[in-house]
Every structure is written in C-alpha cells, then in structure tokens.
Design a protein around this nucleic acid. Structure first.
Lengths: 219, 219
DNA sequence: GAGGTTAAACCCACACCGTGGACATCCGCA
DNA sequence: TGCGGATGTCCACGGTGTGGGTTTAACCTC
C-alpha cells in the first residue's frame, strides 16, 4: 500500500487554472449549486483545504471562474459599421456566457474588479466614440447596452418553460385574473425562441443607441 | 419554572406574512446571505422547523419574499401618454425593488410562477397595445423593456464604488493596459449617479420601443 | 554539500446549515 | 365525546466553509 501523498510534491498538482477548470466541470455536471470546496477538490483528487493555496475562499473561486470565462472572450474584428460591430460584440459575449450555461449567472451577476474583463468594454466604447458620441454619453450608452445584454441573457439562462401554453387549468386561472392584455398576448408569451429573442433585443438596443448618437450630433 | 411552549398554541404564532416580514428584517440588517431557516426563526423567537409549516424550504421562503415585494407594487394611473406611462411603471418598479436593497436581487433574479406578479406585465402590455403594437411585437418589446430594467437595477444594487477615480495606482495600470477608449472615458466611468443613470436607460429604452412601434405601424 | 526557508498539500476540528422524523399539544368539527 | 389535522418543539444527520497546526519536499544561500 502506498502512503497518501503528503508534503510538497515535485511539481505542484494544483494551479489556479486547473482548479478553475475542475470547477467548470462540476458546474457543467451538477450546476452551480453543486460547487463547493469539497466537491471541486474531490474532482481533482485532492484535499479541500489545498485549494486555499491558490484561491481565496469559495467566493474567490467563483470570481476566478467568472474572470476566466470573460477573459476567454475573443472580440470580432471591427468592420467600421457601428451597428454590425456592436451586434458582433454582443454575440461574442453571449456565446462565451452560454458556453457553460450553469456558469452564466456568475458571469452576468458578479462584477469583477480585474482589468482583464475590460477588453469588451473598451471595444464597445471605441465603436461608440467612433460613431460620434461624446465621452460622457458613450459611457451612458455603454451602460445601457450592457444592461439589456445582461438582462436578456439572464432571462435566457433561467428560461422557465414559459407559463400558459396548453396548460388548461392555468389558462382558466388566467382568464379569470382580470389581466386582459396578458390574456390577449398569452400565446406569444408562452413561446420563447432564445436566438430570435436575443437578436430582437440587441438589434433594438443598438439602433436606439446609434439613433441617440446621431440625434445628439445634430443638436 | 415554566415548561417550554409545546404543542399547538391557542392562536397561531406564525403566519406566512409574519415570516416574510421577519425575513425582510433579517435581510435589511444582515443581507440576503444572512437569511436562513434558523436566523429567521430566531428573529421570531421560534424553532426553525416551525417555518416549514408555512413555507416550503428555504427556496420557497425566498420566493415568498420576492412575491410579497412584487405584490406590493402599486401601479400608477395611466395617463394615455405612452412614454410617460411606461416610465412611471418603471419608476414604480424600481421604487419597490429598492425599498429593501438587500432583497433586490431576489426580486430581479427569481422568476416567480404566481399570477400575482403579472399585474405590472399586464400594465406594460396594455400601454404597448394601445400604442399600436401587434400582440406578438408587444411581447418582444415587453421583454426588451424588462431586460433593460432588470439589467439596470441589478447594476445599481451591486454598484461597486466604481473603479478608477483618484486611485493613482489603478490609474497607472489602466494607462498601460492598452485600452485607449477606457482611458479616455475613465473619469465618466468612475462616476455613477444612480438616479440619473436609471432615467437615462429607461428613457432610451422607452423611446426606442415606441419608435419601433411607429415604424412597424407605418410599414 | 549542508542547512534553513517556504510552498504545497495534508488532517483535525468547529460552528453552522437545511431538513427528515418522531413527538406533544390544542382547535374545530362531527 | 372523540378524533383528525394543524402547529410548534426537540433530536439528529449529513453536509458546508474554513481556521489552525503539521508534514514533507523543493528551493536558496552559504
């Protein structure tokens, strides 16, 4: 029988990256709720406390995951067409956020304080400035775009099977609820095409932003 | 010595409402992370397991809180001016969500399956339909508005003290980071007026939505 | 080479968490 | 009168994040 590993190994078994990777593996299989120092450590065949040498606590671990995900975002080449470029950035962001659906809330919810995550922000600002926005306005518009992006993606990952549908009982309750507009639009409320919904929201937000820039420029 | 209270009391000590109220109290003083069956029960001078008679588990408890908050939303009287009405609804929603800032993530994040929360949805849809939107388009626009609203409020409640500012070291790192647009707009990125930011985002989203409706109507 | 320093991994232990199960008690209704 | 169900209590279990101390092996300096 071999004695259990103890002491400093010849080459470190763990690294920040390997831990993040393992965490992502746990998230993909058990969801974000299944993440814990112990479960991640188990996935690495290692003691839980060892993780603390590379990551500070569970919260730090989750931050690291979010950072890693955002850091892996590859920005599309700008084409000069503001509308097209903003949409492309949004799509890249979405692809990255949904690569690990379970981890999406982390990316969308935690605001990270590292500099690595600022690349996409810079890219968006660049487009806005080039389109003629002033510095201050560009920041407001950036925030607005980010808000719709995050809001849309948040809804997308937690997409309930959508209420209504063919559920008879539910339907009756709705009819009696005194919410006429909801009743009238119920069939459309019940369906939710993720891709189409995303496209619609982003397109609307981007056109609104660019229109606002033109308006201000013509002031 | 008095024997400890046991058995069914003459009049129930607990109720769903009193539990929700106590939970809100805990959230206000200790944040949402401080919420637990035990802490809430302690706030009521009661055993933890007793809560299970009125609420199903911690998750159900949190849902109940979110429901209660949304349920207390008072919708403004419609004036007939679509722009004004949509903004008013958004403001009412915001006021309700920020009444207990610690609980805001609950309201914004959990999608509740009860019918009670649909009143604001109905109100928004009503305005959109009256403004000339088709049923399907109204739903898309509703979702877009909701996304910006939620995204904006989510940022607002977790508003980091904003990076940049007068932090010299941070500033230098930024300069060297090869993010010119961020550097250029840094002073504005550093400041964040919650009210103004909200107004800006909502106004932009609402105008965009109404413009889209007009555009489609003129098709 | 010898000796000290230090990083990385280990185990033990604590306080806390959500909750399942088994009581005790009282109310309302038959 | 009696009895069923609602309500609140206690005990207990497995699981969590993490503080502290320990052990080992690799590195750095003489």
């Amino acid at each position: 029988m071999t004695a259990p590993r103890r002491g400093r190994p010849r080459t470190p078994l763990l690294s920040r990256d390997s831990i993040v990777a393992a965490t992502l593996r746990v998230i993909d299989t058990e969801g974000v709720a299944g993440v814990g120092m112990r479960s991640v450590a188990r996935a690495l065949g290692v003691d839980a406390k060892s993780l603390y040498n590379h990551v500070d606590g569970k919260d730090g671990l989750l931050d690291a995951v979010a950072e890693h995900l955002l850091g892996g975002l590859v920005l599309p080449e700008p084409t000069g067409d503001a509308h097209r470029d903003l949409r492309a950035i949004a799509q890249a962001f979405r692809a990255r956020a949904l690569a690990h659906p379970g981890a999406a809330p982390l990316v969308l919810t935690r605001q990270l304080s590292s500099l690595e995550g600022l690349a996409p922000v810079d890219a968006v600002l660049k487009v806005l400035l080039a389109a003629g926005a002033g510095a201050e306005e560009a920041v407001h518009l950036l925030r607005m775009l980010l808000a719709t992006l995050i809001g849309t993606l948040l809804r997308e990952v937690s997409a309930a099977p959508a209420f209504g549908g063919d559920d008879g009982e539910r339907r009756e309750a709705l009819q009696a609820s005194g919410l006429p507009a909801v009743v009238r639009t119920a069939p459309h409320l019940a369906e939710f095409d993720r891709d189409a919904e995303f496209e619609y929201a982003v397109d609307l937000a981007v056109t609104a932003v660019l229109a606002r820039i033109d308006l201000q420029a013509a002031r």
